[in-house]
Every structure is written in C-alpha cells, then in structure tokens.
C-alpha cells in the first residue's frame, strides 16, 4: 500500500491535471465497454434462441415423438418427460444427502476436523468435471447392471446435485442467528429438535432455493448423461431402460446433418433455457436478501 501511495503521489507531481483527467475519462470508457462486452453474449445467445427456436415450438413439438429421419414434424415430448424423470430420480438421492451433509456441516463447530474434511470433500466434489462424474456413474451404475438406464442417469445427476445442495444449505443454515437457537435450547428442547423444528423450519425458503438451484443445474447437464441414461427415441417411463433428455436430445440433433433436426435443436434449446433460467429467476426472487427469515 505504501509503495502504491508513493507511486500515486509521484504521478500527481509529474503529470498535469488535464492529462490525469483525460486518463480518467479514457479508463471509464474502456471499463464500460468491457462491461457491455461481458453482458452482450447473454443477449446474443438469448436473441438467437428466441429468433430460431420460437418457430419450432408448437403443441406437436411438446407432445409427440421425433419424426423419422427426413420427415418433417415430430417433437421432443419424450425428452421433456425424460428430463423430468431423470431429475426426479436425482432428487430422490441428491436432496436428502445434500441436506443431510449441509445440516451436518452447519451444526458442527468450525474447529471440527472431521467437518472440515467433509467440507473439503464437498468442495472437491463440486470441482469434479461433469464428464468425469459420467465416467464414475458408468462404472457404478451402468456396468454392474448390464446396461444404460434412467436410474444410472439419475444417479449421475445426483452426484452433481449433492455438493451444490450441501454447500448452499450450509451457508443458509449458518445465517440462522445464534439467539434463535439459544431460545429453543432455553425452552428445554433437545438440540435435534431445535434443528428440525426451529432452524430448518425458519430457513425453509432458503433451503427450497438451494434445491431449486441444484435442480436447475441438473436439468441442464448433458455430459453425465451421455453414457449413463444414453438417449431414446421412444416414450420411456422405466428406470431400467435408456431414456431421452432435453440436453442430450439437443446435442444429438445439433450434431446431426439434418436441417429439420437443427430446427428441433433450437426449439429444444429455447425450451431448456426457459426452464433453467425460469428456475434460477424464481430462486433469486424467493431468496434475494440472503437473510434469515426472509
């Protein structure tokens, strides 16, 4: 800091006032251009999605199976249902485990060695590339059961969800003021009841946000599904069969040679973005203050 201050003073001495002002204006200009550049991709991407995707969206698109190659029409109904089923499976494992770990982390003291190992592992887990999660799920949930399945895809997505929920819910539970806990303990409630009845209940909005963010994240994931849930061109409601999902279907269509399918990919992408951004927006709207009890 001292050196920097000296530099500043030196600059005052050697440069003229006018020059410094010009420099200031120039810096402001460059920085605002950088900021505009930083937000323009979102605008560009959303713009293209809407302009190219809106034409593909129709009742048929939402409710029917893909048309055979070369034929027009058809839709992504099976992928929409598939994404819901996969996220449902992922939530069945991911939400309880994520919450459990989050509560564990929030309830253990900051000095606890074991808790800091768990926290480190949760952070590392969040840093595992999603394709590696896919490899892991292939080994654990595809190979032993002899084939690609919705169950394996759901498992892969749950591995993505767990660290997100664990870390977000720990953060949210730590916002609960100490005096609220103490009030519960003073009433003679055992600690587990304080946690279940007061801490969790008071934070339910925040915890719901954590779930929403994790679900949004999981619904957009493609890589972990490529060789776990695979894809399907049929309606599938079975846990043991391959199943389609919006992201994988978009990927498949986008990399196909068919112009018709490219159209479908844009439509699916628009739908996926509406779904994912909608959930993120809702989460933000629900829990913007980052305060307990809001």
């Amino acid at each position: 800091m001292e050196i920097a201050t000296k530099k500043l003073l030196l600059e005052f001495m050697v440069t003229t006032q006018a020059k410094r002002k010009r420099k200031n204006i120039f810096a402001n200009l460059v920085l605002s251009i950088l900021a505009i550049l930083a937000v323009s991709p979102l605008v560009a991407i959303l713009g293209f999605l809407i302009s190219k995707g809106i034409g593909a969206l129709s009742w048929e698109f939402l409710t029917s199976l893909p048309a055979p190659y070369g034929e027009s029409g058809g839709g992504m109904g099976h992928s929409i249902v598939g994404t819901f089923i996969l996220v449902l499976f992922a939530s069945l494992l991911g939400i309880p485990v994520g919450f459990g770990a989050g509560i564990f982390l929030a309830e253990s003291s900051k000095e606890s060695r074991f808790a800091s190992i768990v926290r480190l592992c949760a952070e590392m887990l969040a840093g595992v590339p999603s394709i590696v999660v896919g490899l892991f799920a292939y080994f654990v949930a595809v190979l032993p059961f002899g084939g690609f399945s919705a169950f394996a895809g759901g498992f892969a997505l749950s591995v993505i969800m767990i660290p997100v929920i664990a870390r977000t819910s720990e953060e949210i539970l730590r916002l609960v003021p100490v005096h609220v806990r103490e009030a519960g303990l003073a009433l003679g409630l055992p600690r587990w009841q304080v946690v279940m009845r007061i801490v969790l209940r008071g934070s339910r909005k925040g915890l719901f946000t954590a779930v929403l963010l994790a679900v949004a994240r999981a619904s957009g994931e493609t890589a972990p599904l490529l060789f776990t849930a695979l894809n399907s061109r049929l309606w599938s409601f079975s846990a043991t069969q391959p199943i389609s999902s919006l992201p994988v279907q978009i990927y498949t269509y986008a990399t196909s040679p068919s112009e018709e399918w490219h159209q479908q990919a844009w439509g699916g992408a628009l739908l996926l973005v509406l779904l994912v951004l909608g959930m993120s927006l809702f989460a933000r709207f629900l829990f913007s203050g980052k305060k307990y009890g809001t």
Binding site: A35, V39, Y251, A254, L272, V273, V276, L277, S280, R284
Partner: peptide, 22 residues
C-alpha cells in the same frame, strides 16, 4: 448488469455449444 451476468452463469453448457456451433 450483475443480473445479466448471473443469468449467463445459469445457461446450460449445451446451449453455449449450440450457439457456438451455429
């Protein structure tokens, strides 16, 4: 601006791929 940047973070990878490709 912060809101827009936050939303950019939520866009799924495959959407970036689609836009990047086409």
């Amino acid at each position: 601006f912060s809101f827009l940047i936050e939303m950019l973070a939520a866009v799924p990878s495959v959407i970036f791929g689609l836009w990047g490709f086409f």
